[in-house]
Nucleic acid binder design. Structure first.
Lengths: 97, 97
DNA sequence: ACAATAAGTCAGATTTTTTTGACTATAGAA
DNA sequence: TTCTATAGTCAAAAAAATCTGACTTATTGT
């Protein structure tokens, strides 16, 4: 079903809607993310949902996935430039609470 | 099921999540809202969903419902002070798109 | 008096999101 | 070589959100 976009902020809001995305985003501001640590950090969450959220955040261009080819060869998710542009919005939001 | 709140911005984000809330919020910035007009303005929406969204926005303290006891006796929804505080967040969000 | 408009509610159906549990593939440690 | 960790995927189930259509009650307009 095609959704027409009427409200300009809606797209951005939608980007961060979903049960775990805001939390993932917040943690990504602090440091690079790794799948299994996230799973442990965000209690109540589950693999599938995190995997989906990460994939979507990636598709939206807020996070980028990198394979670190060092010592213990692993995968990292980092905020992109676009993602970083959202930080002030979050800060403002937090200022209101 | 009890949800624990970890991310500070999450509550605010949740306030405006839901298919129609952002749009309703945006329209409320422009002028007071009336149920049936909203229903006509927001194409694709439906009574039930709008009723629920309005009720929730009210509970969250972003909108307030007033019965206008004049000429054609009707009901209006207006942004509260709290609601108005969110305007700059929306503006910032729109600036990014 | 009669029809229309406003502002809903209610139950049930449909859709979307989120969760569960089982399973996979690769790397490193003991 | 066996065990553990990482980083997932897949199908199915469960839960949450949204939509539909019928119905309501009060107020206006004709």
């Amino acid at each position: 079903m095609e959704e027409i976009e009427t409200c300009p902020a809606q797209r951005l809001l939608k980007m961060l809607s979903g049960k775990w995305k805001a939390e993932i985003f917040r943690l990504s501001v602090e440091s690079p993310l790794r799948f299994n640590s996230l799973l442990r950090q965000i209690q109540g969450s589950n693999k599938q949902s995190l995997a989906t959220a990460l994939k979507e955040l990636e598709e939206e261009g807020l996070l980028e996935k990198t394979t670190i080819k060092l010592k213990p060869l692993h995968i990292e998710y980092n905020l992109t430039e676009k993602g970083k542009m959202l930080i002030p919005v979050f800060e403002q939001l937090e200022g209101l609470s």
